[in-house]
């Protein structure tokens, strides 16, 4: 599961008000390199939840990957930034698309219901009495 997928998921357990953001815990994760596509990131940024993304990277033990506040767009999409190692856009791209959580869990912030992640697949199934 990439952090982009984590960013959109919310828990739908009965009793949850927003069920978001799901608290991520990962015992095993890996990175796989993907080519950076600035247009894709540009379209994606306004749609994602920055705080949830930052929280997820910190949960993986990467405190310095992303800053607390989203950098201004001019800085992220500055000319040539995509080619600079460690630039904002590269970090965002890395966080969203290159990190894969293999084992761990997602916990609903309202109800503490935990959803396991096994072999990269989060199990979001609810029991009948939880719907």
């Amino acid at each position: 599961m990439r952090l982009l997928t984590h960013n959109m998921l919310a828990s739908n357990v009965r009793g949850a008000t927003t069920g978001y953001p799901l608290k991520l815990e990962a015992s095993n994760w890996c990175t796989k390199e993907v080519e950076l596509n600035a247009d894709f990131i540009r379209g994606l940024l306004p749609k994602i939840d920055w705080r949830a993304l930052v929280a997820a990277t910190r949960a993986l033990g990467l405190p310095d990957l992303l800053p607390d506040e989203q950098p201004p767009e001019e800085e992220i999409f500055a000319k040539g930034a995509a080619d600079v190692e460690g630039s904002a856009i590269r970090r965002i791209h890395h966080a969203l698309l290159e990190i894969h959580v293999q084992q761990g869990s997602l916990t609903c912030p309202d109800t503490n219901r935990s959803f396991p992640i096994d072999k990269g697949i989060p199990n979001m199934m609810l029991h009948e009495d939880e719907v």
Binding site: M1, L4, T5, N7, M8, L9, A10, S11, N12, T18, G19, Y20, P21, L44, K47, I48, D49, A52, G120, I121, P122, N123, M124, M125, L126, V131
Partner: peptide, 15 residues
């Protein structure tokens, strides 16, 4: 991949 029922899934953001 996500293991879930389509109708019980909820999304906060829609990218």
């Amino acid at each position: 991949l996500i293991w879930s029922d389509i109708k019980s899934l909820s999304f906060k953001v829609l990218p």
